[in-house]
Nucleic acid binder design. Structure first.
Lengths: 223, 223
DNA sequence: CCATCACCTTGACCTGAATCAAGTCTGGTA
DNA sequence: TACCAGACTTGATTCAGGTCAAGGTGATGG
């Protein structure tokens, strides 16, 4: 997710008035949820600011975070009649909401938009494929390493130097639920990485990768 | 996957000649692979007969099976420039191959096809969401139960009676790699289910669900 | 009709990550 | 400056599932 063309770009002669007509802006406060898993799916969303987490729940409360979304990301493709996931703001977010009906009017007027949506879905599918491998086959160390590397690709300016400064805007609980681990395990492994001089933990949210190369290797199970 | 409309149905005045022009049939023998992960993605595929497994690999050979596909299923959406997965026949399969260029000609002529592809991708996304929860948060028992229930939905005639006969066309190794377990664990849990009178194991590939209701409960972690 | 081989099951044991249980750190409040 | 609450870390212990190691089973061929 992140840093790629917004859906507007697929509308060559992008008539922004029409686009605005079919959508409405909304603001979601930290921790507030705006998509309920299983509810009828009536809207698409585009994240315009802040961050959002997507998740599914088991009846007893176990949670799997299936993705984080930020500015420019598209939400709601993983839904037929009802949403296959819940979504909730992570530190406050602003969204653009597109009712399905309106989106359909848009795709009729701008056929390339439909193609754009498919591309978006494909990209998401490819990511999920990798995430299934992470959840099904990687060790805890590999998962955390993968997570760190993944976060790097969300940076605006991929630092040219050898060390990379990372901001982890989500609490450990979310990282754990994203990686299929417990918070304790995530914490322990970050501590271990620190002891191994792979990272510096400047604060809870701010981490510096001292050896991104090596962390990538660990992420792929090739350490 | 399975038992839903083929892409042809989105072509209202379906000109089969045109469709045939843009595609080629192929046969893949048992165990032969026809998509290599990471290779440039030039084709879409539709499974017309037999079965296929999709998977990703880690460098050391660990494998995650990300899905099984059968008649009518569409392959290749989870790809941008290169395939995000490998694919291999499971007991022999026949496929229809659509080069991207040809597919593009088709979507130009039949715009609703593009929509159909997006729907297909959405459906797949929703399935993957559930599978991530399985891999990240479910116990081995829950995974195997989920697998059995999932297989039911692939049956032609969902048996009206209370017990359901299932055919598992894939070896234990594939089930294990699909569920993120080992073959031993899969085997043990099937034996446990048998001992608990939840299933009968008539042969390696043929299983009878004696209490589908209860198995569903286990699958959702509510036993 | 037996041998073989591939696949599956079962058992014994081990281990990575979960669970349970203290601490510690941080930032907000008074 | 001290207090508090919530989030994080760390340690001790447990346990689900993995690993290692025999057996079983059933389809194929000699």
């Amino acid at each position: 997710m992140g840093r790629r063309l917004s859906i507007c770009n697929s509308i060559d002669d992008c008539d922004l008035a029409i686009l605005a007509n079919e959508s409405s802006r909304m603001t979601v406060a930290d921790g507030r949820s705006f998509i309920e898993e299983g509810e009828p799916a009536n809207d698409f969303f585009v994240v315009t600011g802040g961050r959002v987490k997507l998740f599914t729940l088991l009846p007893d409360g176990r949670r799997q975070i299936t993705g984080f979304a930020e500015g420019g990301d598209f939400l709601g493709l993983a839904a037929s009649t009802s949403y296959a996931f819940g979504a909730e703001a992570l530190g406050g977010a602003t969204l653009c909401r597109f009712p399905h009906a309106g989106m359909q009017r848009l795709t009729e007027r701008f056929p390339s938009l439909e193609h754009r949506l498919r591309e978006e879905a494909s990209r998401e599918l490819a990511l999920m494929q990798a995430r299934m491998t992470l959840l099904g086959r990687k060790t805890a160390r590999e998962r955390v390493a993968t997570f760190l590397i993944e976060r790097c690709s969300h940076l605006d300016r991929p630092d040219p130097s050898h060390t990379i400064e990372l901001d982890l805007p989500m609490p450990r609980t979310d990282i754990a639920d994203y990686l299929g681990l417990t918070i304790e395990t995530v914490s322990r492994i970050l501590s271990a990485f620190k002891k191994e001089k792979l990272i510096n933990i400047r604060s809870i949210t701010h981490i510096k990768l001292l050896d991104p190369e090596r962390i990538s290797m660990i992420a792929e199970g090739m350490e």
